[in-house]
Design a protein around this nucleic acid. Structure first.
Length: 921
RNA sequence: GCUCGGGUGGUGGAAUAGGUAGACACGCAGGACUUAAAAUCCUGUGGACAGUAAUGUCCGUACGGGUUCGAUUCCCGUCCCGAGCACCA
């Protein structure tokens, strides 16, 4: 029988679907294991060969764990809300519901062809009202809670009200952004509207005025992780800063816990590092500087991580947006300051970033008093100080901070060095090392000692307090878009009210036009009857990360109508044991879902405080693009090696028209009418294309569709080949060069089970020692490799084993049946077919992973390499069981020892049993 | 600038606790089968030198040093590549 992969794969895929082979239910008799992929956004372009890389790896792992006796939860779904579907709707008028549905269908077809062992009964879609009901529910919970910093947990807002009634807000350790203090008395006299206003400063989901990343082209606000280099991640449009009233999530309240529990997670170091950077913890002091501004004495706080440099402070700087800027500007400087602020406002985020070298600023006209020396410190305003971090004001130490240094040089301000022997003639000395000088009581100390001494002094003199700051900001949660979860919020006048839980899900209405209104109103403003009891409902929708922040919990109990997840299901599945996905979500999804999970944990809805125990980042599979070179202003194309003689433009060509970098000229002519009459300058009668490794994308014409590979080689070959390509975590370009070797291997493997006449011919015979050794070496290797995510080396191990068994002409059930089980994680279709040919009636998925027996792999004789002074000389066959002394004796007796030491005295013999013998002369 | 990865044949990549570097595969070369091609199978394949040959000797994991009987692996310095962060005080 031929290895007819298309027939086999079709047969088993429909078998699995029909018999629901991979359906999983809670089973208290079995240990659980939860393997999760980052669910895809179903884009119109469909899957390319890069997408399944992680899915294949997780599928191998899930299948392996199943064979090992675990009850494996391995679900899949779709992150279906998002911008592209809406952009498409704006262009075509097609409702996003329809296009998303179509895209999902296409994705499903492509996924099904690859033989994944998902339990499709648990599929979820974030745009399904039955799913986003729970996204809205979680939002309501956040609206209804505040964060207690003392107890380090979220608590119901009613309890905060009780605290306010008793003691006002001054002594409540809550995460908040309330700009003022009030007493219990004040609180009790507040109107209802005023109370709501105050509570909004404390809610975990809150509506607040903030400076946001506004993208005029997309007509929406973006979160920090959705902006890169001052451009939107989606689309690459410029982003400006704008003050807007937005829904936000108080992620910053969880900063410390998000940071601390990173240590308990089995994530890659680089990913943890990225999260640490993003959270950005820094320890220091918040100190108060007095500003004597005419009749009023202000106390202006600044944050510093270098209190040791206090004696080097020669001026102060405020952020242009800081509230202090207005207060501290002297009358005679008002015009310049106003000009400067309006100048700073016109700059986009991108300009501000690229312009870091240019020093700008303006003097406010006021002076602060140095707390130790009493000196007058001029207060400047400059855009290099950020309003959103610390207090929006800094004490400048030009000698030891490079930004302050540039500023001081530019405006000719004094610079006082504080470290003995440091050279500050060209640049500041930023390193935290050396001995202090010019620093009063800190003279002679090291920097580390001085920091501690300064902190003690600041606390003692009540000049300030120790403080830890985080870079992590609250997440902006409003999007002025249509295709997202509606907020379950309505407005009673100015007061935002939560919809009752019984009203959930609040279903996204259909609208007539997806066009932006032009007035900045979100599309939902145009929905008819978008009201709750005559009160208008919030017209913004939630951002993309809302739906993906708790989806891993929903998979545990996807059809529950009473709860996000039942207590029983959650107690059984706990959290994700293995999460596989791209590193691009490091500072977005992976922070938000950890935050979301911790919040639900605080409320007692779930039992684990972290969602993903182990996380593996698969690398990207890049595309290999091809180029042709058009001579400028002509329709003539010149071959790659001749292009340097002309002035050419590089143009991407569809890789389907290129083979081994040789262009199919006819296909190229038909590709685009513009090229129909093109002429070509050839080399050796061929047109050679240039090439480059780039991101796989439609616009670069370098996309390889997995469907094509499946029809040409089969899914099993594709699965094996994607793993064989290299280490999972590494990025690599797609190339087809090795795929034949992998396909050849599968055919060889298939042939093991058939005789010369191509009849299935597996015999019931006793295996030989050599056959058992091959099998058991493989069992050990496969188990080890899968546990260590070394999928590429497993494929090699299969190849070696199959070669050996072919050599041995082994056709015995006792060897070949376990072999099927071993390979079934990687190549499930061929494994199922052989498994059934072997007479098994149930799926190979229900088999047991073969047990490794070290007896069979034991070697009697071992070939010891013998080296002299570390240089390999010869090999000697000895028993592995021999004692050190016996080995030494045998080596000394061997005549080659004499030859290679040429009579020199042997000073020492290093014997590592089972490894090596080294003679030191 | 800071942080984290990484540099191994013509290519993708192995080497699991410091112990035979280059597994496995691609490519290439030669051979078998065939009228021929495809497919399949076999052999060789890091470099240099010596030998008719089996084989032997030396060099070799970006570069320079160190630790060690022994370093692709550990330490220090340099160079290059990739990723992330970037006025975060």
């Amino acid at each position: 029988m031929e290895y007819n992969f298309s027939k086999i794969e079709e047969k088993w895929q429909s078998y699995w679907a029909k018999h629901k082979t991979y359906r999983v239910v809670e089973d208290l008799d079995k240990p659980k294991f939860y393997v999760l992929d980052m669910f895809p956004y179903p884009s119109g372009a469909g899957l390319h060969v890069g997408h399944p890389l992680g899915y294949i790896a997780s599928d191998i792992y899930a299948r392996y764990k199943r064979l090992k006796g675990y009850n494996v939860l391995h679900p899949m779904g779709y992150d279906a809300f998002g911008l592209p579907a809406e952009q498409y709707a704006i262009q075509t008028g097609q409702p996003p519901q329809i296009t998303t549905e179509q895209n999902i269908e296409r994705y499903r077809e492509q996924l099904d062809k690859l033989g994944f062992s998902y339990d499709w009964d648990r599929e979820i879609r974030t745009c399904d009202p039955q799913y986003y009901k729970w996204t809205q529910w979680a939002f309501l919970k956040m609206f209804d809670h505040w964060y207690d910093k003392e107890k380090e947990t979220a608590r119901p807002i009613e309890q905060l009200v009780v605290l306010f009634e008793e003691r006002g807000n001054a002594h409540v350790a809550a995460a908040h952004h309330c700009p003022y203090e009030f007493t219990a008395n004040d609180w009790n006299t507040y109107s209802e509207a005023r109370k709501e206003e105050v509570l909004m400063y404390y809610r975990i989901a809150y509506l607040g005025e903030t400076s946001v990343n506004w993208c005029p082209v997309l007509g929406t606000v973006l979160a920090n992780d959705e902006v890169k280099d001052g451009l939107s991640v989606r689309g690459g449009h410029p982003v400006i800063q704008k003050e807007m009233k937005q829904w936000q999530l108080r992620v910053s309240a969880y900063a410390e816990r998000l940071l601390d529990s990173l240590d308990t997670l089995a994530w890659s170091d680089s990913l943890k590092e990225m999260q640490r950077n993003w959270i950005g913890r820094s320890e220091g002091a918040e100190m108060v500087f007095q500003v004597n501004n005419g009749p009023v004495i202000y106390e202006m706080p600044v944050f510093t991580t270098r209190p040791d440099t206090l004696f080097g402070v020669t001026f102060m700087v405020l952020a242009p947006e800081s509230e202090w800027t207005e207060k501290l500007t002297a009358k005679e400087n008002q015009q310049q300051v106003a000009d400067y602020i309006s100048y700073a406002k016109t700059k986009t985020e991108r300009e501000r970033m690229t312009d870091t070298q240019r020093v700008t600023g303006v003097f406010s006209g006021s002076y602060a008093t140095h707390p130790f020396t009493g000196e007058k410190l001029p207060i400047w305003i400059s855009e290099y100080v950020m309003a959103g971090y610390g207090t929006g004001a800094i004490m400048a130490v030009p000698a030891h901070d490079s930004r302050d240094y540039l500023f001081a040089k530019h405006f000719d301000l004094p610079i006082i060095p504080l470290i003995e022997g440091c050279d500050i003639s060209q640049e500041s000395f930023d390193a935290k090392e050396g001995i202090m000088c010019n620093s009063g009581f800190m003279n002679g100390m090291t920097v580390a000692q001085a920091i501690e001494a300064a902190l003690l002094k600041i606390e003692k003199d009540k000049l300030g307090v120790r403080k830890t700051n985080y870079r992590l900001r609250d997440a902006i949660f409003s999007r002025q878009r249509y295709w997202g979860e509606p907020f379950p919020i309505y407005y009673e006048g100015n007061i935002a009210r939560p919809l009752p839980e019984s009203e959930l899900p609040l279903v996204l209405p259909h609208i007539d036009s997806y066009q932006p209104s032009g007035t900045g109103e979100p599309p939902l403003a145009g929905a008819t009857n978008w009201k709750y009891k005559d009160f208008p409902i919030e017209t913004c929708t939630m951002p993309g990360f809302a739906g993906s922040s708790a989806y891993f919990l929903r998979y545990m109990d996807p059809h529950n109508t009473e709860a996000l997840v039942s207590e029983e299901a959650n107690a059984y599945w706990q959290n994700v044991d293995l999460y596989i996905g791209g590193t691009e979500h490091a500072t977005g999804h992976l922070i938000y879902s950890r935050f979301w999970n911790k919040f639900l944990f605080d409320l007692g809805y779930i039992c684990k405080d972290e969602p993903f125990e182990k996380l593996v980042n698969q690398g990207m599979i890049q595309g290999r693009s091809n180029f042709v070179y058009r001579i400028k202003n002509t329709n003539t194309f010149v071959s790659y090696n001749l292009k340097d003689d002309y002035d050419t433009t590089e143009i991407h060509v569809d890789i389907n028209m290129v083979e081994n970098d040789k262009l199919d000229i006819e296909a190229f002519r038909q590709w685009n009418p513009e090229y129909a009459n093109a002429t070509f300058i050839l080399e050796n009668d061929e047109y050679i294309c240039g090439w480059a490794v780039e991101k796989m994308s439609k616009s670069m014409f370098n996309v390889v569709n997995p469907d094509d590979i499946c029809s040409q080689y089969g899914a099993d070959t594709l699965r094996l080949y994607e793993m064989f390509l290299g280490p999972l975590e590494q990025s690599k370009p797609w190339d087809m060069n090795g795929i034949d070797g992998v396909h050849r291997f599968l055919r060889k493997f298939w042939k093991l089970y058939f005789d010369k006449e191509d009849r299935f011919a597996v015999a019931e015979e006793e295996p030989t020692a050599a056959e058992l050794k091959t099998l058991h070496q493989l069992i050990q290797k496969v188990a080890y490799d899968i546990e260590h995510f070394s999928f590429n080396t497993t494929v090699s191990a299969f190849m070696i084993a199959v070669n050996e068994l072919t050599q041995l002409q082994c056709r015995k059930r006792s060897i070949l049946e376990p072999l099927v089980v071993l390979i079934s994680s990687y190549a499930p279709h061929i494994a199922e077919e052989l498994w059934s040919l072997l007479g098994n009636t149930s799926s190979v998925a229900h088999a047991c992973f073969p047990v490794y027996n070290p007896e069979y792999t034991k070697e009697d004789a071992f070939e010891y390499p013998v080296s002299v002074n570390g240089k390999l000389r010869f090999k000697i066959n000895l028993s592995k069981e021999l004692t050190k002394e016996a080995i030494e004796e045998a080596v000394l007796k061997d005549e080659r020892t004499e030859k290679y030491t040429s009579g020199s005295l042997i000073k020492r013999i290093v014997v590592v049993p089972g490894k090596i013998i080294n003679l030191v002369v």
